[in-house]
Design a protein around this nucleic acid. Structure first.
Lengths: 210, 210
DNA sequence: TGAATTAACTTAACGTCGTTCAGTGAACGG
DNA sequence: CCGTTCACTGAACGACGTTAAGTTAATTCA
């Protein structure tokens, strides 16, 4: 009587096939190439079949990037065991930038594209769990730095600090992704720019000079 | 015998009408609302008429934002007379953020959307002229700060420094534009985040503490 | 076993989009 | 006054996301 279970398993398989096809298109040719019809072609189904597994195209993309939010969180988690919160932040920044440069199309969709009301309810990630939620990891690190008295005394809001740190690395890397083909500017490697900015910001945020 | 001149004048007028209609749609309803057919409706022409004045939709958007690059450059120019380059940079950052928050749709298109090979040749702005080119203004300010010996001695590349500064303000403001509807994060006002980050970065980049 | 139900899937279609092409009619030049 | 040029239009093409109706096969129940 395991027919129901088998059906669910098969349904899950197709769901994953859709996501895999979408990811291939997304990575290789970018957002515009991810078309219901082209996804369907790759998995040898009709375009409308996708609607049996996802509400609409947006849901496909959200599910796709859920997987990548998880991957990002896991990559940050790798360096979660660094003792000094400031050093941990530095290394998180580097990992974040590596992630963005390795998956620019995903990064664009995840962090450079507005998603109307994309609340946690539509996602499978548990908010606040640092193993799944990269933001919780960053915020937690900032809070640790504050609690350990490492930062200047006027810096007491971990959200504010974490958002500033995020803004710094995001700014450098998203500028690079959006405008690296812009010939107005003589671009420097984003890693170098980010290293400079992070180092300066950290120095400016620490309680005393070393 | 001024018929040719009159024709050119009329053509320029329609071009401007197209841009104005496109801007209205863009500001009020965002990128997706800017449709050749909807632009045409507003100016009471057929959609194909637009192609007599612009190569394609992309050209309309580029021309539209050219005007806004100019506006941004002019707003920066207003504070161009601040003596101290560091203070000038601080105020430029604030002006930049104000611009982004006042024109989020334009900002998105200008700085958060990749434009394949958008070189200066397609634009009417003269590269390097700080009155028209905001990037030249920023880079120049960074160069001044370096030349005046205000920055730490290892900072010798004005491009690197200027790109870091740009990255900082861009990061905060673009994160806000892209994700302010994201309920995962308890967002702080972008002005506050940017102020914190800028102040920290500046402090970390100056040669000595005040 | 055979009829009824359910689920997965397809085909056809709608309305939108950017863009192209074959006209049309008025203004212009000789 | 005739031929040309010019701004412009309407219909059309192929793509898009999405919906509705129909088909087919597996499952359930009598």
């Amino acid at each position: 009587m395991g027919t129901k279970e088998r059906r669910e398993r098969e349904k899950e398989e197709i769901r994953q096939k859709i996501l895999d096809a979408a990811r291939e298109l997304f990575v290789q040719e970018g957002y515009d190439a991810v078309t219901m019809r082209r996804i369907a072609d790759r998995i040898e189904y009709s375009a409308t079949a996708i609607y049996l597994h996802f509400k609409d195209k947006r849901a496909v993309l959200i599910a796709l990037c859920d997987e990548d939010f998880l991957r990002l969180a896991r990559e940050l988690q790798k360096i979660g065991r660094v003792e000094d919160p400031v050093e941990r932040m530095r290394q998180s920044g580097r990992a974040y930038i590596r992630f963005a440069l390795e998956h620019p199309n995903h990064y664009r969709w995840m962090f450079m594209t507005p998603h109307p009301d994309h609340g946690p309810e539509e996602s499978g990630i548990r908010v606040g769990n640092p193993e799944e939620d990269a933001w919780a990891f960053l915020r937690g690190t900032a809070a640790e730095a504050i609690d350990a008295g490492l930062l200047r005394p006027e810096l007491t809001d971990p959200d504010l600090v974490a958002q500033a740190v995020w803004g710094a690395v995001h700014g450098v890397v998203s500028l690079h992704i959006a405008k690296c083909n812009d010939h107005w500017v003589d671009w420097r490697p984003p890693q170098e720019v980010a290293e400079l900015l992070m180092e300066a910001a950290i120095r400016g945020v620490l309680r005393r000079e070393a």
